[in-house]
Design a protein around this nucleic acid. Structure first.
Lengths: 186, 186
DNA sequence: GTCTATAACCAGATAGAC
DNA sequence: GTCTATCTGGTTATAGAC
């Protein structure tokens, strides 16, 4: 293995371990062992462990919206798309083993010294998500129980709250309830 | 210093550091230094670092509902009490410096080996919180936009989502929006 | 019950050979 | 650009004196 293949392998392994064990509980040594690469190769491609996390989150951010777009493409009705956003999250939750959102997870455990970059990636990721929600809400908010911006915030916070609480209960119950709630509000 | 005073001092210092720096980034050494106690004193009162975290969360859980009860006592109208629950969370957020909910924070960074006890304390804490919400909702849900159980879940998830997202944005904006949302739904 | 000294181990990062 | 060996300082926990 060499060049980009090594870099990709390191990122894949790190991504997996950071999510399953947490960033702080994952050592460089374990990443090296499970990647089957040499110590110095890691430090050739990444200047530090923090750098590795930042790169990982950047990739995850890109990937998140590619996957979401693909998932929503099969629906045409904006109402259905909005509800499908919850299903997307339920599917993700199952796929990831109920660990919660990786951006929030990293943001909550990162040290003050490293937090700036991590929080800014998380912030950008969530604001992009809100923008997607807002776009759909503007096409669908017929009942006018809430104005568009508050309905957007509601849906966003339900998704975030339910995903994270699902990491405590190890279930999709809150996300399933969120779907019903959203159905009643739009 | 001796006996219970030592134990209390250790718990106070640990509680503060676990919240500000995170559990995994806080070393036993730092707790000892800042508590001005001896190494072996800590291991006399607590059998391990995990044990210290569990004790800390147990105390925080008790304290949380004592504080909440005190805060809500100045209101009589159940509608006002419900909205005051958001204000309580906003006040807490400011007091704690926008670090997010300590139970969720600990639950998301804990190792698989230690997670059982931590998740069960968090789970119990949140279900008790839901119970408080549910009690008020049953007295106040006039509009019937949502049935009681879904309105309860909505308020709960708004509080959780907004508190944690506030740790990313370092602001109370989402909690303030949540208050408006809840006002529109009850 | 508090103290100091130390065991046993693992972290992140770098130097220099090839 | 990948390799191995090593540096330095950190970790949690325990032993035994007082």
């Amino acid at each position: 293995m060499k060049g980009q293949a090594v870099k990709d392998k390191i990122l894949d392994v790190a991504s997996d371990l950071f999510y399953k064990q947490g960033y702080n509980l994952t050592g460089i040594n374990q990443i090296i062992d499970e990647s089957d690469i040499a110590r110095a190769s890691l430090y050739h491609h990444f200047k530090s462990k923090t750098d590795l996390l930042v790169e990982n989150l950047r990739r995850a951010d890109e990937n998140y919206f590619l996957q979401l777009e693909k998932f929503l493409a099969s629906f045409t009705d904006p109402k259905e798309k909005l509800l499908a956003m919850v299903d997307f999250r339920i599917a993700l939750q199952k796929k990831l083993g109920f660990g919660g959102c990786r951006f929030m997870k990293s943001s909550l455990e990162i040290s003050k010294e490293e937090e700036k970059k991590v929080l800014s990636i998380t912030h950008a990721n969530k604001e992009k998500l809100k923008k997607v929600i807002r776009g759909l809400v503007s096409q669908v908010n017929q009942k006018q129980i809430l104005p568009d911006d508050l309905l957007t915030e509601t849906i966003f916070l339900l998704l975030e709250g339910a995903s994270l609480y699902g990491a405590v209960t190890k279930s999709s119950l809150s996300l399933k309830k969120s779907k019903k709630i959203i159905e009643s509000l739009i």
